[in-house]
Amino acid sequence: MAVEFKDYYRSLGLPKTASDDEIKKAFRNLARKHHPDVAKDKAAAEEKFKEINEAYEVLGDPDKRRKYDTLGANWKQGFAPPPEGDMGGGFRSTRPGDAEEFHFHGTGFSDFFEQFFGGQDIHRGFSGFGRGGGYGGAATGPQRGGDVESDLLVTLQEALNGSVRQLSLRRIDGQSGQARTETFRVRIPAGATEGRLIRVPGKGGEGLNGGSPGDLFLRVRLARHPDFRVRGNDLYHDLLLAPWEAVLGTTVSVPTLEGQVSLRIPPGAQAGQQFRVRDRGLPGEGGVRGHLLAVINLATPERVSDAERANWEALARNSTFNPRRTP
């Protein structure tokens, strides 16, 4: 099946020469604008959010970006997808004596991404594993269909509250070429953190000789969020402070998945220091939620007025502080 090339630079509105910082900024701006939780037209925003997430997933990772840039250059010269068994083939059942091709819609990733970048996950190397042949019966008896794995893009809100997603699966029989599409719903449980598996019984490869079908295993891939990074069940938020806020202390508003909360920063806060907002992370084992960690980053003004400059100069003259002084 022909795979449509995705122009990820266009998705983020950037030239191919964009720096890593420009890519990050463009993603954050667009993700805030099109985040399904804030947009008015939720359906359109969701599609756009997935598109920019996928684009950032590739362009935000130097290795994937390099591969994509090479691929893009070759694509226009009639680049052919890699053969089965190469990096991309994550959607074929390895049922003995047959080959079945799977295309999912609703996982949050395009066929293009799955074909060229999904394969970088080592577990994809085992896609299509199953019980047919070699275990539990002769080749002429009923053979259960192979199991199939795919990634499922899950937003942090979905991971927090759980949701139901409609997926459609298009199967193409490797021998007859006949295609069949079926639609089904998958429940994403609350607490579906990165890498978590969701098993969908009977949606894998067809069985042989009356054997039952295999299963579909969906692996949760958390969508990137403009305000949070995820580690386990904890969320990290980079909190920018002005130098005087860090020195004197302040109270700031920080975002959580459930709205803003006030956070008191004590005097003398240091860059890299973390302040914890309890129980505002993602659900974890044992019913306990992770935390939100606000990580202090100090920002300085790029330009200052004459009056501001005079204040900084006065501070420089009068301060005894030297960050490079050894004790």
Partner: peptide, 12 residues
């Protein structure tokens, strides 16, 4: 703080 008691759902 809200949410601390939210149980995780896990198919077992």
């Amino acid at each position: 703080m809200s949410g601390g008691e939210q149980p995780i759902e896990r198919q077992s």
